[in-house]
Simulated scan of single mutants.
Amino acid sequence: MKRTSVAALCVALALSACGSPPPEEQPHGYVEGAEESPEAQPAIAYAARGSHRLHLLDLATESPSAIELSIGAQQVSEDGRFVYVTDGDRRLEIVDSGVWTVDHTDHVHYYRAPARSLGTLTFDTKIATVTGFGAHTTIGTADGRIRVLDRRRLEAGRLVELARITAGGTGPLALPYADGLLIGMGGERIVATDAHGRESGALTAPCRAPRDAVVLRGGAIFACDNHWVRVKHGNPLSATILASPRPPGSHVRFGYRPRSNEAALAGHTGVWSVNAAKATLRHVPSAGRRITAAASPADGRTVLALDASGALLSYDLGTGKILAQAHVPATSLTVDVNRAYLSSPRERVIREIDYRDGLRTARTLRTAEQPDLMVEVGR
């Protein structure tokens, strides 16, 4: 009897196990709450200056949507997924655009989810820099302080502060890189720290008055007052100084194609083009034109520039010759792997430009408000 009941119990347990489905394994690239897509889901995020509404224009379907803001937009920036909107003073609102790309170097994943505002932060002094990449987002303010946010928590819809760092200077710049930060300390040098601002000793490099910084495939690039610095991932980190007798502009941003090694920056006398993998720097004179923005198609041969009249130009990097130009009244420029986008606020349009085909206008996209402020996300 005892053996029979044990056998019966074993059979019952076996039947019970058979009746319970095995736990499902999540497929590679699974992100909870998001839909994975076979191709990129780029969108233009734009706003009229002072507006309490951020518009999102889907570039695949041309369908519009909008997010209500709690502040009047004066400046916008992006990190591929999140749009950082400031009121030009002490308030920052973070918007999840709902479209993004995850780069695994040998392959990429594309995602879509509902767009939403994640909330607003208020700082003690004016916001000077906002940079997001990988695990962190950093905000530098005019009092020389940096606030570090957990960008992974932003992905889950939460604003979580990790640290407050005193860096010195009037507009400190902190670039998330290699699981930590590269900080322009005191406006004089770049140091490597952890996410809480503790110096690791892994790197110190001179950099007076850093203008802007960007993470490319071949390393991180800082544009400084009288030279450039390429920081390369490794054990330990390494820094290469790139000499530049002509300084870049003081209020400019890098323009670059995602997942590339090249980026461009407008300068006082022309356009700078930097290659992070090769640690090379080239300057293209603008022959009297005042360049307001620049971007790299990352083909090793050309660079795009927007001048003060609103004209878009394509320069040959080797000769400095103008290869093509488009006479459009544009105020901002962004590029992705296929196209460039120009905003024309007075006309209420955004032009899609084929930079591989003589700067041909491929599409003219109508906007609901003046696109005074424009960035591209999901690219």
Rank of each mutant, 00 (worst) to 15 (best):
H28E: 13
R53C: 05
T129G: 01
G184Y: 00
E161R: 12
L92P: 02
V377K: 00
T166M: 05
R147N: 07
A43Y: 04
L54E: 06
E62Q: 13
V214Y: 04
D299S: 13
S343P: 13
H52C: 03
T122E: 14
G320L: 06
E155F: 12
A73C: 09
E369D: 11
A295F: 11
G310V: 10
F254S: 00
S20Q: 15
G157F: 12
G171H: 02
V349W: 05
R301E: 15
P206N: 00
F254W: 13
R339H: 15
V375E: 00
S343K: 12
R91N: 07
A213N: 01
T302N: 14
T4H: 09
A14C: 14
R257W: 10
L281W: 05
A60M: 04
R246W: 05
L15E: 12
A209R: 06
R116M: 13
E78S: 11
A276F: 01
Q74Y: 09
V375G: 00
A326F: 07
E32V: 08
Y177R: 03
R346A: 14
G288N: 11
N275C: 08
T4G: 04
I221R: 02
T361S: 11
D194S: 09
V11K: 08
V95A: 04
T331G: 13
I353F: 07
I127D: 01
T170K: 07
G358F: 12
A266T: 05
P27F: 05
Q75I: 04
D179M: 07
L304H: 12
A12L: 15
T131K: 05
L181D: 02
P236C: 14
L173T: 02
H327A: 15
V148A: 09
G50R: 11
A163V: 06
A276S: 14
C224E: 00
G19K: 10
T280K: 11
D150T: 09
S65M: 09
T302G: 11
L15Q: 10
E68H: 08
E376V: 13
H327F: 15
L181N: 01
G72H: 03
G168L: 04
K232F: 08
A115V: 06
V215W: 01
I139D: 01
A60D: 06
A205S: 04
R217Y: 10
T280E: 14
A266D: 05
G187E: 06
E352Q: 15
G318D: 14
G168S: 06
R189G: 03
I165L: 09
A239K: 05
A277K: 08
S286D: 08
R116H: 11
S5A: 10
A298V: 05
V349A: 13
A73G: 07
P245W: 06
H107L: 13
A47H: 03
R3A: 10
L182W: 01
V328P: 05
L281D: 03
S273W: 05
G171S: 10
P206K: 00
V229D: 00
V252H: 01
T204C: 02
G300M: 13
R339C: 12
L182S: 00
A135W: 08
E78P: 00
L118E: 06
A298M: 07
H28Y: 11
A340S: 14
